[in-house]
């Protein structure tokens, strides 16, 4: 499975990870090796097989639409990198 550098950069962008220019070819070959392993899947005809998303086809339980959690904003924001006045601080998003 050959990848070009542009695809590698695109995957990195999707993953919000930056690849140092000096490491692009190393990353590309590591990803190619994994995709080569994965490519063994292609040989199998899976027509009519239902995808299995969970063991035992477990389905997610639903719960009553009721408030169960207490407000713990201060406790949770105490571990935030930057929070002020009950808000999480991030760089400006909209001009």
């Amino acid at each position: 499975m050959a990848l070009d550098n542009e695809t590698v950069h695109n995957i990195a962008r999707l993953a919000r990870i930056e690849i140092d220019p000096s490491e692009v070819s190393q990353t590309r070959s590591a990803l190619e090796n994994i995709l080569e392993l994965v490519a063994q899947m292609e040989a199998v005809d899976t027509t009519g097989i239902e995808p299995m998303t969970h063991p035992f086809d477990a389905t997610m339980r639903l719960r009553a639409d009721a408030v169960t959690e207490a407000n713990q904003r201060d406790k949770f924001q105490a571990i935030a990198p930057k929070a002020e006045g009950g808000l999480y601080l991030v760089p400006k998003v909209i001009d």
Binding site: V38, M41, E42, V44, T46, I49, E50, P51, M52, T53, P55
Partner: peptide, 15 residues
């Protein structure tokens, strides 16, 4: 489809 969906179908065969 080629990756995630195919992998989940194989998961069923393995199961």
């Amino acid at each position: 489809d080629a990756y995630y969906s195919q992998a989940q179908k194989l998961r069923r065969l393995i199961s």
